Every structure is written in C-alpha cells, then in structure tokens.
Simulated scan of single mutants.
Amino acid sequence: MEGSQIEGATQYLTFTLDEEVFALDIGKVREVLDYTTVTKVPQTPDFMRGVINLRGNVVPVVDMRLKFAIDATENTVNTCIIIVEVDVDGEITILGAMADSVQEVLDLEPDQIEPPPRIGARMRTDFIRGMGKRDEQFIMILDIDRIFSGEELAAVQAIDDDISQVSNG
C-alpha cells in the first residue's frame, strides 16, 4: 500500500462493553488474549480485577466495565483482555483491559471522527478522543493514556513493583 493512500486514516481496534462500541488506537495495542484466570490483589479499587502472568511478566488487569461505571457481568466465551501500553509521565506501563468482546480493526479517516461531546463541567470526557461514525453506529474512540488518573496508575505500578520484588526475591 502506498503511504499516500492511507494518509490521515488511523487504525483502531474496536471492542464492546455492554451494547456500546469503543475503539483504541491500534498503536497502543500489543495483543489480544482470551480471558484467563486473574489473580485478585487485595486492597485495590473495584475496577482493578487483579494480575495475570504474561510470559513471565506480571500484568495488571482492569475491568473496563467497572472503570466506566457499567454494571459488571459474567464472563463469556467472548470476554477478552486487550494488552495495551499506557503512557504515564513518559513511562510506558503495560496493562490488560478487560472487554466483553473484540470486534475488528477499523480504518477511520479524520472526516469520520467528530469531536467528543461537551456534556458539562461535572462530566469527565477528556479520555474520549472523538466519536467515530460507521454506518449509523457511533464508536467512542478512547485516549487510553487519559482513562486512568495519575493516582490510579501509580497504584497499578506499585502493585506491579511489589509483585515483581516478591517474585524476584
């Protein structure tokens, strides 16, 4: 493919939570895993499901439903963990984002993306990069680096560090 043909288009991995479709910039996605057993870590926020072993590395797993205040649900055969890279103050943290299902990799042109909705000062929407439109369906394009607050990611990194020290010690 010629570079000029794809200029402006960005690839997104689409996934579902409840009946809604969300998307992440494919550049932030490392891989998609089938759901596996998650080891719960005590005294972590509800949305923090625990950790998994990914080829010898401890990876924290976040339930995106709970993070977005959507009712929890039973895991199904489609439940998956999207392994993403999150930039925290210039440092990359690897995180698992639990989703109901992964849909597809989608190319969206800039003219297919609307700015995020302005809902008011009390509603936080800074983690929504834009609203993609495909046919008659809206796709919320997420900015994975802004979904988690600095404190939340500091807690995730602390868990990772604590477990790494235990496994290395």
Rank of each mutant, 00 (worst) to 15 (best):
E104R: 07
G8A: 10
V58C: 05
D135N: 13
M123N: 12
Q11P: 10
I128N: 03
E136Q: 09
T76G: 15
N53A: 14
Q103A: 11
E85M: 11
E104Y: 05
E20L: 10
E74H: 09
V38I: 05
R134W: 00
T14V: 04
G56P: 15
V102C: 06
G150L: 15
I163Y: 05
P45V: 10
R134V: 02
A121M: 10
N168T: 06
Q11S: 14
D107M: 09
E109Q: 03
D107W: 15
E152R: 14
A99Q: 09
A23E: 11
N78V: 04
F47M: 05
I52Q: 01
S101N: 11
M1D: 09
T125K: 06
D100R: 00
E74D: 12
L17F: 11
V21M: 00
R146E: 02
A72G: 02
T76K: 15
G96K: 01
I147L: 15
F15P: 00
I70Y: 09
L106A: 00
V88E: 15
V77K: 15
A23S: 09
P117C: 08
R30K: 13
E136V: 07
L13I: 08
E109G: 02
D145Q: 10
R49F: 00
A158R: 13
T37I: 15
I128F: 02
L108H: 10
L153Y: 05
I70R: 12
E151L: 07
V102K: 10
I26R: 06
G120Q: 04
E109I: 03
D34R: 13
V58F: 08
A69F: 12
G130L: 09
V156M: 11
F47D: 13
G96F: 06
D63G: 04
E74F: 02
P115Y: 05
G8F: 12
S4T: 10
F68D: 07
V84E: 12
P45G: 06
Q157E: 13
T79Q: 01
M131P: 00
I144K: 00
I159L: 05
Q165W: 12
S101M: 09
R129K: 11
V102R: 08
P42V: 08
L108K: 07
R118S: 10
D46I: 14
D145W: 11
D87C: 03
M123D: 14
A155E: 05
V61K: 06
G27P: 08
V41R: 03
Y35C: 08
R134T: 02
G120M: 03
F138W: 10
V88G: 09
A23C: 00
L13S: 07
K40W: 12
D34G: 13
A121V: 15
I81T: 04
Q157M: 09
D25Q: 02
I94W: 01
S101I: 02
R129Y: 15
L95Y: 07
M48L: 11
A97P: 01
